[in-house]
Simulated assay, not measured.
Amino acid sequence: MGKFARSWALMKASASVLRSDKELMVFPLFSAMASLVVIGSFALPIILGAMHGQHFDQRRLEPIQYVLMGAFYLVQYTIIIFFNTALIGAAMIRLDGGNPTVADGFRIAWSRIGTILGYALIAATVGVFLRALQQRLGFIGRIVAGFLGLGWTVATFLVVPVLAHEGLGPFKALKRSVQLLRGTWGENLIGNVGLGVVFGLGTFAVMLCGAGLIVGASFTGSVTLIIAAIVALVIAMVLLGLVQAALHGIYSAALYRYSNGEEPGTGFDRQMLESAFRTK
């Protein structure tokens, strides 16, 4: 319970940084919009093929389909990593006491574009490998892939902060992330779980309220009120997702700074971090 309490304190500190720089939510917004375009671009040929009678069996993929999957992962990961690098780069400026702009975040991310592409290629390769493992080994493959995926997620948690702050190559950034997490892996896991639980409950509450509004509007028989209730629910869900993504970036930036032996920065109390991140 103590670890969860400390993680909650770190989340509140992250929220205080976000309140100072609400423009940090621009980066996950752009990331989501670009990701939707990519998903649509890759999904459209599949949809058109299905309309013309082509059968797509997800349980038995052909080599060309693995190639297309790898291309999709590569583009998608590049977009996500690029905007996360911009977010964390801007958050680093705020933690140093500066006042970052959206342009500052994009400048940092663009200066790392080569490394971002290299790391996206590694992540895409891992993604295709895990998917192939699931396909070839069935139920056991899904279990093994799940554990490997969890390990990969933990090991790479600080890769983007390393890319944003140190500018190392993709393989060196991976190695550096693992080195930094050796002393803080417990808080890393619990911090992520804490975020997931908090926003999971928040999502449930928003959906419950939204469903109530929609049902209430339906009783009035007004189409306008029903549409307004649906739009309000969608907007609330989008805002909740943007806040979660922004807080996740700020949290990882703070974790990186402490793991790297730096001052925690504006909004974070060093004593709180010292009690949270103990050497394992």
Rank of each mutant, 00 (worst) to 15 (best):
A86F: 05
L95W: 09
T85G: 12
A86W: 06
L87H: 08
L95C: 12
F72K: 05
L87I: 10
Q58L: 12
M92K: 13
Y73C: 13
L68Q: 05
H55R: 14
G70N: 13
P63W: 00
V75I: 15
G97L: 10
G89K: 08
T85Y: 03
A86R: 06
Y66E: 04
G98E: 09
T78W: 02
V75E: 02
I79D: 12
V75S: 04
L87G: 11
P63F: 02
I93G: 04
G98V: 08
G89D: 07
P63Q: 09
G89H: 11
R94S: 10
V75A: 14
H55I: 12
A71D: 10
P63A: 12
I93Q: 09
L87F: 05
E62Q: 08
V67N: 00
L95G: 13
P63M: 08
V67D: 00
V67M: 06
I80V: 14
H55D: 09
I79N: 11
I64F: 01
Y66H: 08
L87T: 10
V67G: 01
D96A: 11
Q76R: 08
P63Y: 04
Q65G: 14
T85L: 04
R60I: 01
V67H: 00
A90P: 06
I88G: 10
I80A: 13
F56T: 08
Y66R: 00
A90E: 03
N84H: 05
I64V: 09
F56R: 10
V75G: 02
F56I: 13
Q65T: 09
Y73R: 13
G70V: 07
G97Y: 03
L61F: 04
G89P: 09
F82H: 09
T78R: 01
E62C: 01
R94C: 07
M69L: 10
T85C: 13
R60K: 10
A71S: 12
F72T: 06
P63K: 10
Q76A: 11
M69P: 00
T78L: 05
F83A: 06
A86D: 04
E62P: 00
M69N: 00
I88C: 05
Q54G: 03
Q65S: 14
L61P: 07
A91Q: 05
G97K: 01
G89Q: 07
F83M: 04
